[in-house]
Amino acid sequence: MSNVLVVAEQLEGALRKASLPAVKAGRELAGKVGGKCHVLVLGKSVAAAAAEIAPYGADAVHTAEDPALEHYLAEPYAQAVEQAARALGAGYVVATASSTGKDLMPRVAARLSAGMATDVLGFVGDGAAIAFRRPMWAGAVIAEVTIATEIKVLTVRGTEFGVPAKAAAAAIAPLPVKIDAAAVKTRFVSLEQVKSARPELTEAKIIVSGGRGTKGDFKPVESLADSIGAAVGASRAACDAGWVPNDWQVGQTGKTVAPELYIAAGISGAIQHLAGMKNSKVIVAINKDPEAPIFQVADYGLVADLFKALPELQAALKKDA
């Protein structure tokens, strides 16, 4: 019982890219515990999403289709994942720690009498004695966690694992599941998606973020981001004030990001925010306050007014290009 089952996410039939790091973690884990890496794609009609994920190195891809799985809901999805885990002899059930993964996987764990670790960063040891590294106290502590149950459930932090290398496409086969739709107590009403021409925060190579220092005016942040094809992020303070959509928040309680370049403008650098971006390859901080804690993690710090520095930076990058 040491196969690994990776639960992939799709939205309206298209694979969610956030699923790919879970496949990478699943492959790595399968190697360490000596099992096969299976991927499960669930929904109403998921052939396209299954084909999309097949070339990322799983041993097999399974599709579970049912009308009750049309919209993601924790209850019917947990039923399906439990059945797949039992059918495939999974000792480990893995998903990305996205909002869906975090919502779904504890219910899966309860159904499988499994212990669960959230936001796993990596593995320690191998075989049955394997332990999981995960952040606690907003990332101020990294703990090694052991799980005593026969089946173990994990969500993994996408930015720590990244996207797996492509391989020959795995075979795709349907996996029959039986959903008790009458037992589902939740109804999907609507999903209001934040549509944007910008790259996704969690996938962007460059992120420009603004905080309290913008005083609610994100124009220079957005203008610089758009001129260099970057995503736009924000601190919790900026989101709480209603200046920008909540979805832009970078931090322990928002999105965890790790771009090549992170530009923090007018962000003081609360622990909460740092936990969400300190794995960025290069960090630039622009802040009027020379004592701001953000400078302690920044590779390059510029003590300046963002309303002056950001347009200058935009112009300089344009001129050089």
Binding site: A131, A140, A143, T146, L302
Partner: peptide, 26 residues
């Protein structure tokens, strides 16, 4: 069922440098 057994501080990020102006930053 789940036990945290070993705790460590995350690897510290090395502090960087301050740059005087945008041109140096670029």
């Amino acid at each position: 069922k789940v036990m945290a057994r070993k705790f460590a501080a995350p690897p510290a990020r090395k502090g960087g440098i301050k740059v005087p102006d945008v041109a140096t930053l670029v």
